[in-house]
Computed example of a mutant assay.
Amino acid sequence: MTTTSSFDYIRFQRWRRPFEIGFWVVVLLVNTVFNGMVTWFDVTYRSHRAQSIEPWIWEASSSVVILALLPFVVMASRRWPLRLDTWRQNLKIHIALSVPFCVVHVGLMIVLRLIAYRMILDWRYHFGDDWLRQLGYEYLKDIRTYFLFLATIGGYRLLVLRLQGEASLLAEPDEGPPVEPVDRPERFLVRKLGKEFLIAAREIEWLQASGNYVNLHVRGRDYPLRATMAGIEERLDPTRFVRVHRSYLVNLDYLAEMEPLDTGDARLTMRDGATLPCSRRFRTQLRERFGDVPVGA
């Protein structure tokens, strides 16, 4: 299978994590600057209710804490994705999670402001006389921020899946017999950038469970398939594919070496040089089927 695209996904994968971290840092930095300018204009320039440095302390402390909480929002979005089939149930979970998000945000924000006020202004920071009302005000802002993050993360994932290519099983035709066994597919359909491609099941080098997806690794690319590992294992050729870990299936045709570890587990080396884990539970079964593949010491 060959594909051509102006977007180099492999190169993007190398820089994906710095890009994602840098994106949120830049977004929160820009947000801090703009909010700081607006707050400074309102409470310092127009009403003279605060020192010039105070709005910047408020906005910077808030942004630093939100940036620290962002990984937890990312994990929550993976664990409870807002999709068409799950949004009713998972929406309730995210509404509930927005409460501790706000409480932690406000609590750590206050701590940072207390430290900044003491070090810079030699004052004691005062959050407000009516804590409950002030916390409610902060929650209205934080729940908006929380769901804005969820929307941004979800949109980004959809974009990446579209650029990367998403696999699916070939469906049984509406009329006539299927061209191949549906219960044990010989090919998978991959949609990418508005085009469709077929990949042969025998070309899949290994499979990895990832949340609600199973990633099919083919020639240096990962194609996510919406399925469970147990479900897809039943539909693959058992003489070619073998489970080596609760999260991994490997194609024996692409397995080069198995290296036993002191823990009882093993390290697998694929033909392309990639290394995969093999748990002790599956190590014995794999050795029995290893055939002529060289085994490490």
Score class of each variant (00 low, 15 high):
residue 167 A to N: 02
residue 168 S to C: 00
residue 172 E to V: 03
residue 173 P to R: 01
residue 173 P to Y: 03
residue 177 P to G: 02
residue 177 P to D: 10
residue 178 P to T: 04
residue 183 D to C: 07
residue 183 D to Q: 11
residue 184 R to M: 14
residue 187 R to P: 11
residue 189 L to M: 11
residue 189 L to A: 08
residue 190 V to G: 08
residue 191 R to K: 14
residue 192 K to C: 13
residue 193 L to D: 15
residue 193 L to N: 15
residue 197 F to Q: 07
residue 202 R to W: 00
residue 206 W to Q: 07
residue 210 S to K: 03
residue 219 R to Q: 12
residue 219 R to A: 13
residue 220 G to E: 03
residue 220 G to A: 01
residue 221 R to D: 13
residue 221 R to E: 13
residue 226 R to I: 12
residue 232 I to A: 03
residue 234 E to L: 09
residue 235 R to Q: 15
residue 236 L to V: 01
residue 236 L to E: 10
residue 240 R to Y: 06
residue 244 V to C: 14
residue 246 R to Y: 08
residue 247 S to E: 12
residue 248 Y to F: 14
residue 250 V to G: 14
residue 251 N to V: 04
residue 254 Y to A: 12
residue 255 L to N: 06
residue 256 A to G: 00
residue 256 A to N: 04
residue 256 A to H: 07
residue 256 A to T: 00
residue 257 E to D: 08
residue 258 M to D: 06
residue 259 E to R: 11
residue 260 P to N: 06
residue 261 L to M: 15
residue 262 D to A: 14
residue 263 T to S: 15
residue 264 G to F: 13
residue 265 D to I: 06
residue 266 A to T: 14
residue 270 M to V: 09
residue 276 L to R: 05
residue 276 L to S: 14
residue 285 Q to H: 08
residue 287 R to Q: 13
residue 288 E to M: 05
residue 288 E to Q: 10
